[in-house]
Write a protein that binds this DNA or RNA. Structure first.
Lengths: 224, 224
DNA sequence: CGATAGCTTGAGAGTACTCAAAGTGGGTGG
DNA sequence: CCACCCACTTTGAGTACTCTCAAGCTATCG
């Protein structure tokens, strides 16, 4: 999942129903905190996340990390470039994944419908990454975090009475590396949103959005 | 073109030879400073840049801009997402473009070779954008500009005696919007590199790299 | 040769970072 | 079952980097 300016279209299932696609390969399971693949690994499979959440990231030589995306159920991960993985992929929770052969992406001979679905997922990823660019390059800390929470609220939030709740499987430092901030700044910005009465948090991983309109406004830079 | 940590593989022609692909549609020409398409336009064509340079960007409501990429000869631009363009595309110079029908990307029925070439271009774009993420989210101003110059030097630099020269068709403010900085910071950082004897500039659009190793070191964060 | 757009430089302010310490919660072992 | 430990989060103080606003400078083009 990529963070973007909320947009109705974003929240459709990106690939549609792949159920009917063949041949069906058995699901892969992965325990929390394990790596599915690393940058530089040869791509044999693409995966659709079935349940759980994964984190895609890249590392700089000196240890700086950029989180590229979070993979939620429905998302396709593992697109190759010159046959290789260009991110690390780690599970944030126990995860179930439906593998698809790389060949299905690269040729429609096996299953044209699957081929097209994977292609469209790749194209969606491109446009989603473009939104993420905007956020990384041009937004302030509070705009970044507000954008992040807005997208998550739409995509994986649950109704909680009149409000909307998000459960965050990722740590503050994962969020920081996604938004191009430090953990301290992310933490301070959460506090700022809490003090403004826009969100409330519980145990740091449950966030309730009390004022969605205010949050959306912040995400777009409607001056604080 | 996307900025990345220099990597041998980056500098191959992304799509390979499309000459043999059919049917050949006449080249499009565009004068400097014109828009080829805007965000939200329906995608009818993809284009391979034949000559000249284009700029792909997105705009925030308040006018903040993020430059997504520069399109140099060989680059494929215009990938659709749900059938729509997700960036604006403007020419920085007079430009020639080879159009390809969108249908060739979405189905291999017309020309499987072309289909595959376009698909691979899309996949390359994904990995290139991932490098750009790292730069936007995790690098300092000097690291960003050094990375930018390194990539351009490799991709479109020309030998100038023992040195390498780049001609920049984009303004300081285009560079700033690409790197997530302000024009002033870009300008100051150019000056900093000049004073360090790493580059020299002429008329602000011609850059000679005097110390490529030092520049590469800076781009990777080998402490100043 | 003057006008104008783009580039550079300067001074000061503000945001996010660094380093440091205290608080919180979950897990483990006694 | 409770206490301790460890990892993560939050808060604090001070710094540094980049931004903002402003003015000069430089090229280019009529």
């Amino acid at each position: 999942m990529y963070v973007t300016i909320p947009d109705q279209d974003m929240f459709q299932t990106p690939v549609g129903d792949l159920e009917s696609c063949t041949p069906k390969i058995p699901e892969t399971r992965l325990k929390e905190g394990r790596f599915l693949y690393l940058e530089g690994d040869e791509v044999e499979w693409l995966y659709q996340v079935t349940s759980g959440v994964v984190l895609l990231s890249r590392l700089l030589a000196d240890g700086r990390r950029q989180v590229i995306a979070f993979g939620y159920p429905g998302d396709i991960i593992g697109f190759p470039s010159r046959g290789l993985h260009h991110t690390d992929c780690m599970s944030l929770t126990d995860v179930r994944l439906q593998p698809y052969r790389r060949a299905h992406l690269e040729s429609g001979e096996g299953d044209p419908k699957l081929h097209l679905a994977l292609l469209n997922a790749a194209l969606l990823e491109i446009s989603a990454m473009q939104d993420h660019f905007m956020m990384l390059g041009r937004k302030s800390a509070i705009e970044k975090l507000a954008s992040f929470l807005c997208v998550f609220s739409e995509r994986v939030g649950e109704d909680l009475g009149p409000f909307r709740q998000i459960t965050l499987p990722m740590s503050r430092s994962d969020i920081a590396d996604f938004l191009g901030l430090t953990t301290e700044t992310v933490s301070r910005t959460f506090t700022q949103l809490r003090k403004a009465g826009i969100i409330s948090t519980d145990k740091s991983d449950a966030v309730v959005i009390l004022k969605p309109t205010a949050l959306l406004g912040l995400s777009l830079g409607d001056e604080d």
